[in-house]
Design a protein around this nucleic acid. Sequence first.
DNA 1: TAAAAATATGTAAACGTTTGCATGAAGTAA
DNA 2: TTACTTCATGCAAACGTTTACATATTTTTA
Lengths: 345, 345
Amino acid sequence: MAIKRITITELAKELNTTPSTVSRALRGHECISREMRDKVNDLAIKRNYTVNRLASSLRSGSSKTLGIIVPRVNRDFFSNCISGIEEVAAKAGYTSIICQTHDEQEKEEKSVLSLIESNVAGILISTWSDSSQSPAFIEANRLGIPVIFFDRATKDINQNKVVVDDNLGAYEGVKHLIEQGYKRIVHFAGPQHIKIYNDRKEGYLKALREFNIPIDKNLIVENPLSKDIGYDAILPFLKGPKKADALFSASDYAALGAIIRIKEMGISIPDEMGIVGFSNEMFTSIIDPPMTTIDQHSKRIGNYAVQACLEAIKEENPVFKNIVLSPTLIIRESSLKKPLRIINK
Amino acid sequence: MAIKRITITELAKELNTTPSTVSRALRGHECISREMRDKVNDLAIKRNYTVNRLASSLRSGSSKTLGIIVPRVNRDFFSNCISGIEEVAAKAGYTSIICQTHDEQEKEEKSVLSLIESNVAGILISTWSDSSQSPAFIEANRLGIPVIFFDRATKDINQNKVVVDDNLGAYEGVKHLIEQGYKRIVHFAGPQHIKIYNDRKEGYLKALREFNIPIDKNLIVENPLSKDIGYDAILPFLKGPKKADALFSASDYAALGAIIRIKEMGISIPDEMGIVGFSNEMFTSIIDPPMTTIDQHSKRIGNYAVQACLEAIKEENPVFKNIVLSPTLIIRESSLKKPLRIINK
DNA sequence: TAAAAATATGTAAACGTTTGCATGAAGTAA
DNA sequence: TTACTTCATGCAAACGTTTACATATTTTTA
């Protein structure tokens, strides 16, 4: 069935020249005469020649493929990062392989190894963070394959990172709640071994301290932050001794679950309960009420990450980069107790 | 900087044997003694050996990589298809390269060519449909690279397809609206050169005919079905001579835009206006009111598509497959005018 | 005990490129 | 004319595997 693809050698034969000349002509090597270059290119088009990247990469040792690893592609945040990466990568002639880990560390390890096997030129990863010392990463480092952590970065200083100032974002969000008059603010904190969640919690604490609001550890819930978990986790805070008047969730999804529960209980948002989420997922603007959240400039993160990666690929002795973007608070109805001032759609 | 990776040849030297033996041992060839096999595997692990897939694929001519092309990854429908594909693909030892076209035909062409250059074993694609005769696909066919169209399939009979019965889905959705007592049903139809949108329109017409509801062409709007477009497109039908009492949208996103507008105008859903969307995007269950929509079993589509692909890769003289799944109507509040009977969450 | 069969390993070519070096032709300077 | 450049192309090895075929060793059979 499979017809063999046409090769450089066949083109060469047909033109009574050699593979090396054809190869050089196709890549626009300047030491090939204009006449020969045109002849080769014309025939290549006529014969539907496509380069065999396997052979090309194998010989040249450089692969024009980037690996992207994310927990899952169907989060707006990640798919926007991916768009940001591909945008820049495509311009530089790179293709990308996308892997999903579903937040499983084992899959992350496997993905990295698989990308190494595929000879990627660089790896862009957003996931289990503290794994920068796991065997797969050590191997990537040993082989000189640059690894760029984006969003969820390792604490390790000697790594390339593009992150958002999560601490600042959380601080802004909580400060906003406090300014709106909320006092007992629940915090849905993610797993604390992941740096972003740790930073968000710190930002939460910082805002409370600054406004002299006593810190109540009972208000801090550490959980994996899914919609369903949010739905359950908010319950203890809706009445009884632990009753709170606001929620700052480190994830929009968990906040969503909470909102569903709160509405079911007939509690009013934002009057009785203010809500601030994190990530500016698409749904936050369309639910009822629209949710205040923190935008992380996901696409820009992708842009910067791939730029850093391409630089690291080029440079001989690359220096580790640490790029920090400032997030933006997007205020919507879910946290606007005071008379309405600004609403960003 | 880059340290060269360890090769099969170096393993061979260290064991005083040859590359061929090592190669066979690593792949568990049965003609290698157990003793040798163990020795090789132990050393490979010790030295962090990873196979070089470029070399391997180049030599063997088979690549264990699949190409996936979708309009965009951040649609629940597509990301679920992708999960469905990867699930099965990973089990069979395949990696996948994901490309986004953003609904641009040129990007689709480029993606296909790029996948061919990357020597993928097969291509799974959901996009501009009628391009099955474009140069890139002809080339893929010529090279014997199986192409599986999923969801958005070409009309061309001689192609592999995994689709949902869009006609049936639309029919069920519209029938449901009629049974609820709605009479003037607007249809947001997508671009009609895309088969799925054409089928959905046919399903809409079929239901009307069956219930003897006169077909009013003014109620059919053909547009690219984004949220913003839906927001604008519903306007003419909310008052005046064209006033309608229901919307069947071929896309959840356009329906969402319409809902936002309808609520802004103070019109009640579902009492004054019933809504049915298409695709069961995640947000349809959480907006207010929850939207009735049609689930396409996206993950299953992915499963079937990759199965068909793997079969086509194996077989010598593959037969074209045409798999059709039945969609499921998910009834929620947006279309329940009559006293509530069933609500699927 | 010789021959045949089975088992384990080695040899060398091949996959389609790229690239350092060599070669030949044409042009320029002395 | 000779020698030195410059320009365009060819030669051949290399990238890291896989694999058909050959060889060497052991076991079985007559």
